[in-house]
Design a protein around this nucleic acid. Structure first.
Length: 404
RNA sequence: GGGAGUUUGCCCGAGUGGUUAAUGGGGACGGGCUGUAAACCCGUUGGCUAUGCCUACAUAGGUUCGAAUCCUAUAGCUCCCA
């Protein structure tokens, strides 16, 4: 094991908050491997880069010789985490949760070291709990304490409903820490309250409290809101290499350093060199972004996929060539009596536009191309001869379809 | 249990009987410039083979020549009292 100082340097890098930092040092000084906890709610079947942030940190812990306990929140997911939400989350069925959990684990293992990872389901102890046990735990918290939580305060003040069961979420998450005897619990900054609840509960139940370690939230590809599937600004860990490349290229320059630090496989020293080069202007943001995209694809797919995705990107966006793989669509091209076909309808049927009306607007806006040629405004009905097998319809820069 | 208020398009938010899918902003999308970045400029933002037709301002009825706007009931939400 590395020295405590060296461990601290690696562990603290990129973190948002460690509460309390001094106690983390004390735990490390004992020399025994620590038990690092991360609870994940399998509310959606796949992970995105934002989820990868704490996983990356945990991997660093593992590389330092510590152990990780990954808690699949099949129990807590039935409550729905109120964190960062201004409304009650929908409660999920057990089947959905189980299915999601399976893919969740396989994706997490692309980052974590399986040898040093224990996976547990908190439903295993949550569901069999009787009212007696629940009350014993819940009685350790006061309503005032739970209401302190920012999300609840805001919702209460903005007259947004808070359902009673939502109060149980931090309580049950805290209980997880007791059950697995966590030394450190990881989470995003929005998890701080939940993590501190764990500290409190452990202490009240006569245990050494865990350390709360939060990671900054990673903003999505818009660079503004946190990465989230519901905002549509996410880079999914299972995204196809081409998508992963494109999405990475679309992040704002200001986010490059953060993405490297929180989500890439680069070491702390490498990240710091990149940060410095961006700060003094010697680093080319465009090239750094490309390199970042390659790094991500290499992690979640392979180096070969990364190279292929990059080549494809250049082909489509630098040279304005057609992509290699274009989905084929079978459309009814039967011309009307005047020898024309309804282009707006075709675009809709091909899935390139949500409605024929939208397709018309796209045509008028110059966003529709046939074999690379822009279609003139108002050409909703076009000569049937223009469309034959192999013809490529394009909407915007990235939506293509080839006629079967 | 009683009372008051509120409910508009993806989101916020104008609009209190009378041309009009309904001001404005955000977001999103398309075009230009670029590096699928930012900034900036332009356009679009209910459906429909469309100089028109249909559906829309929580839901269902009603008043009226005419309703997002008035009335009634129902539902959701919020607050106050108990």
């Amino acid at each position: 094991m590395l020295s405590v100082d060296e461990q601290m340097r690696i562990i603290t890098s990129g973190t948002a908050k460690i509460v309390p930092e001094a106690d983390l040092r004390k735990k490390l000084e004992k020399g025994a491997p620590l038990n690092i906890k991360l609870g994940v709610d399998p509310t959606s079947p796949d992970l995105h880069l934002g989820h990868a942030v704490p996983l990356r940190k945990m991997r660093q812990f593992q590389d330092l010789g510590h152990r990780v306990t990954l808690i699949i929140g099949n129990g807590t997911a039935t409550i729905g985490d109120p964190s960062g939400k201004n409304s009650t989350r929908p409660q999920l069925s057990q089947e959905q949760v189980e299915a999601n959990a399976a893919t969740y684990v396989s994706q997490a293992m692309k980052i974590l070291d399986p040898e040093k990872t224990t996976i547990v389901h908190n439903g295993d102890w949550m569901f069999p709990m009787g009212l007696k046990e629940l009350l014993a735990v819940a009685s350790k918290f006061t309503v005032a304490r739970i209401l302190e939580r920012d999300d609840f305060t805001k919702r209460y003040q903005s007259q947004t409903p808070i359902a009673l069961h939502e109060f149980l979420y931090p309580v049950m998450q805290a209980y997880d820490s007791v059950k697995i005897e966590a030394d450190v619990e990881m989470g995003g900054t929005d998890q701080l309250f939940n993590l501190l609840a764990g500290r409190e509960l452990m202490e009240k139940m006569g245990m050494e409290p865990q350390i709360a370690l939060t990671m900054p939230l990673l903003e999505g590809t818009d660079g503004v809101r946190k990465m989230s599937k519901s905002y549509g600004n996410y880079i999914g860990l299972t995204d196809a290499p081409a998508d992963m490349f494109g999405k990475t290229m679309s992040i704002p320059d200001e986010m490059i350093a953060k993405y490297y630090r929180l989500a890439s496989s680069k070491s702390i020293d490498e990240v710091e060199a990149i940060e410095a080069s961006l700060a003094d202007g010697t680093g080319d943001p465009y090239q750094l972004k490309r390199a970042l995209a390659r790094d991500l694809i290499t992690t979640y797919h392979s180096a070969e996929h990364a190279a292929a995705a990059e080549a494809e990107f250049d082909r489509v966006f630098k040279e304005n060539q057609l992509p290699e793989d274009i989905a084929e669509v079978s459309l009814d091209l039967t011309p009307g009596e005047d020898g024309t076909v309804y282009l707006a309808g075709l675009l809709k049927d091909a899935g390139l536009a949500p409605s024929a009306g939208e397709a018309r607007r796209l045509i008028d806006g110059g966003g529709v191309k046939i074999d690379g040629e822009a279609v003139a405004p108002k050409s909703y009905n076009i000569d049937a001869a223009l469309l034959k097998s192999g013809t490529v319809l394009q909407v915007g820069k990235r939506k293509f379809a080839r006629l079967a």
